[in-house]
């Protein structure tokens, strides 16, 4: 469904992602693992059109995503839940949700369906609908950002560091919502530093260490091998 081919990304002369390739199959949860600064977020930003590629290619359902504007990538069926939650703090929860539906906003029936789906998956959003987004707890905000991403009705959902700063009990609810999303038939790419979480929810994964790919394959092999330990500890 999504193929990253020999991708090179740079900020100025600093190459933060070097020659990375992996592919994500339809319907799976794919984990992008690695320590802080390994280049996970940069790859996700490149998929969404926020960072230009120096070389290589990103192909989604047979079409390249390079040199495309973010909104047209959303239109193509990719939603991106950014790092650090990034809700709109002074907008109401329901307004936050509706912003996610921007590309479908003229199709009222579809927006209503999408909203109903989100409220069913994340009932807390209905309870908090009129509150300002900034007043939600961290876990609630994370649910809101995932729901907001779903409002674009994506086929591929990108989630960057969903467990960052969340308490263990809340991380479990995030894991639950990932399972529900997979049941909807969604393909998910999740970038995580939290390997436990990633290994719990993902089918396949890739491990990045300082901008280079050190492993890619099923999470079962990942559990057994010590690539993770090496990526994180440099040992």
């Amino acid at each position: 469904m999504l193929e990253i081919k020999n991708l090179v990304l740079a900020y100025g002369v600093n190459r933060v992602v070097r020659d990375v390739s992996f592919s994500v199959a339809k319907g799976e949860v794919f984990a992008l693992l690695g320590p802080n600064g390994a280049g996970k977020t940069s790859i996700l930003r490149a998929i969404s059109g926020l960072v230009p590629a120096v070389s290589g290619d990103i192909v989604f359902e047979g079409k390249t995503l390079l040199r495309r504007r973010p909104h047209s990538i959303v239109l193509d069926g990719i939603a991106h839940v950014p790092e650090g939650r990034q809700i709109f703090p002074e907008m109401s929860v329901s307004d936050n949700l509706m912003v996610g539906a921007t590309v479908h906003i003229n199709n009222r029936a579809r927006v209503r369906e999408l909203e109903a789906r989100c409220l069913e998956l994340f009932p807390i959003i209905r309870e908090r609908a009129r509150q300002a987004g900034g007043t939600l707890s961290g876990g609630e905000q994370q649910q809101l950002t995932i729901a907001r991403g779903l409002m674009a009705d994506p086929r591929l959902l990108i989630v960057d560091e969903p467990t960052l700063g969340l308490a263990p009990a809340i991380i479990n609810t995030v894991a639950d919502s990932f399972r529900k999303l997979r049941d909807l038939g969604l393909t998910i790419i999740v970038a995580e530093q939290n390997a436990d979480f990633a290994l719990k929810v993902a089918d396949h994964g890739a491990v990045l260490a300082s901008g280079e790919l050190s492993f890619s394959g099923s999470v079962d092999t990942l559990r057994d091998r010590d690539v993770l330990r090496r990526a994180y500890l440099g040992a």
Partner: peptide, 18 residues
Amino acid sequence: RTMRATAQGGETAELMGI
């Protein structure tokens, strides 16, 4: 909404298709 979203988080707004 798109204007307020852009004011409160420009890049996130772009990721939402704005």
